[in-house]
Amino acid sequence: MDALEILRQVVVLVHLSGFALLFGAWAVEVFNRRVQVTSLMSIGLSISFVAGLILAAPWGIPYELNYVKIVVKLVVLLVIGALLGVGSSRQRKGGTVPPAVFWLVGILTLLNAAIALLWR
């Protein structure tokens, strides 16, 4: 394994860590029966987004990147970001996060992971 492939694998680990932070923060809120958006969710989303963009760059790998899959994952990630934005905006204004928005964040986060693993 050359140095470039090791670096790419480190970026994959960072990408997965961002997902884990986003989903884990969401799961904590579910466990505590709170319907709210936290800053950890946004941080996890940001880490996942930046690392995903880095992974979408050509690394000189011997196989073709699946750009359709990358775009689908990006769209799902942007929708999650929009939902987090709506939820945090409502919270700042003293309101509550609509339960549908909260649950969609978790469902779409899990969907994004499923796309990553199952789409070949």
Rank of each mutant, 00 (worst) to 15 (best):
residue 9 Q to W: 15
residue 92 R to F: 03
residue 117 L to N: 02
residue 45 L to C: 07
residue 98 P to C: 02
residue 3 A to G: 07
residue 66 N to D: 05
residue 23 F to W: 15
residue 55 L to Y: 02
residue 28 V to P: 13
residue 104 L to P: 02
residue 35 V to A: 08
residue 58 P to W: 07
residue 60 G to H: 08
residue 41 M to H: 05
residue 82 A to C: 08
residue 28 V to N: 04
residue 5 E to W: 07
residue 93 K to M: 12
residue 22 L to K: 13
residue 71 V to Q: 14
residue 7 L to P: 13
residue 65 L to M: 06
residue 47 I to H: 11
residue 100 A to F: 08
residue 7 L to Y: 13
residue 92 R to Q: 09
residue 83 L to M: 12
residue 76 V to R: 10
residue 114 A to D: 13
residue 32 N to Q: 13
residue 88 S to I: 04
residue 64 E to K: 02
residue 23 F to A: 09
residue 22 L to P: 03
residue 9 Q to E: 13
residue 94 G to S: 00
residue 89 S to A: 00
residue 5 E to Y: 04
residue 50 V to Y: 10
residue 8 R to N: 12
residue 47 I to Q: 05
residue 12 V to D: 00
residue 15 H to Q: 15
residue 86 V to L: 13
residue 3 A to T: 11
residue 52 G to W: 00
residue 92 R to L: 15
residue 103 W to S: 03
residue 91 Q to T: 01
residue 45 L to Q: 02
residue 40 L to V: 00
residue 54 I to K: 07
residue 110 L to Y: 14
residue 58 P to K: 10
residue 101 V to A: 00
residue 2 D to M: 04
residue 69 K to V: 12
residue 28 V to K: 05
residue 47 I to M: 03
residue 4 L to C: 06
residue 82 A to P: 05
residue 13 L to F: 15
residue 46 S to W: 04
residue 59 W to V: 07
residue 84 L to V: 11
residue 10 V to E: 10
residue 2 D to L: 10
residue 34 R to I: 11
residue 109 T to H: 00
residue 109 T to M: 01
residue 4 L to V: 15
residue 64 E to D: 01
residue 83 L to N: 06
residue 32 N to K: 11
residue 44 G to L: 00
residue 38 T to C: 12
residue 64 E to Q: 02
residue 72 V to I: 14
residue 61 I to M: 14
residue 6 I to F: 10
residue 69 K to R: 13
residue 98 P to A: 01
residue 75 V to A: 11
residue 105 V to F: 12
residue 76 V to L: 11
residue 59 W to I: 04
residue 120 R to P: 06
residue 91 Q to G: 08
residue 102 F to H: 15
residue 80 I to W: 09
residue 46 S to R: 05
residue 62 P to T: 09
residue 70 I to A: 10
residue 89 S to G: 08
residue 25 A to Y: 03
residue 51 A to P: 13
residue 80 I to K: 11
residue 39 S to D: 00
residue 97 V to W: 14
residue 6 I to H: 11
residue 11 V to S: 12
residue 54 I to M: 14
residue 3 A to W: 14
residue 86 V to D: 14
residue 40 L to W: 00
residue 91 Q to M: 05
residue 16 L to I: 08
residue 60 G to W: 01
residue 32 N to G: 06
residue 45 L to P: 06
residue 48 S to L: 02
residue 37 V to R: 03
residue 51 A to T: 11
residue 24 G to D: 02
residue 76 V to D: 08
residue 98 P to N: 01
residue 25 A to D: 00
residue 64 E to A: 04
residue 72 V to K: 05
residue 87 G to V: 06
residue 114 A to S: 01
residue 120 R to K: 11
residue 1 M to T: 09
residue 67 Y to Q: 04
residue 46 S to T: 01
residue 18 G to L: 09
residue 83 L to Y: 11
residue 115 I to H: 06
residue 26 W to G: 08
residue 72 V to E: 03
residue 4 L to K: 15
residue 88 S to A: 12
residue 107 I to G: 07
residue 117 L to K: 06
residue 79 V to N: 10
residue 24 G to S: 11
residue 73 K to A: 02
residue 26 W to F: 15
residue 12 V to F: 08
residue 51 A to W: 05
residue 111 L to F: 14
residue 93 K to D: 09
residue 58 P to H: 07
residue 46 S to D: 04
residue 69 K to W: 10
